[in-house]
């Protein structure tokens, strides 16, 4: 799988706020600096999360197929929600 980020990632970034080789998606409400070209799989790996135990929503779209995580590139300004099951009634 080629990991090169699409050019749109660079165009979307506002000059001067983010290093050219990094991106800042918003993960669970907090900006997270990542290397450009990072995917959802990279994000989970970096956070130490087991993909089988979480659910990922990318820009309000739920990623139902975990096998697509490695092919799902992230960009600055993307909204990522990572949820899991907790105790509840």
């Amino acid at each position: 799988m080629p990991n090169a980020p699409p050019l749109s990632i660079f165009r979307r970034m506002s000059a001067g706020t983010v290093h050219r080789s990094s991106i800042t998606p918003v993960v669970n409400g907090e900006p997270k600096a990542m290397a450009a070209g990072s995917t959802v799989a990279d994000l989970l790996c970096e956070l130490g999360l087991d993909p089988r135990l979480v659910v990922v929503e990318h820009n309000r779209t739920i990623l139902r197929d975990r096998t697509t995580y490695a092919a799902q590139p992230l960009a600055s300004g993307d909204t990522i929600e990572i949820v899991h099951f907790v105790g509840g009634g």
């Binding site: 956070l47 087991d50 135990l53 990572i82 907790v86 509840g88 009634g89």
Partner: peptide, 18 residues
Amino acid sequence: TVAVRRVNLQRSNDEGIL
């Protein structure tokens, strides 16, 4: 029954019910 909540990225990931 279980609830769906954000993973707390600040803490260890031991809080999940699974």
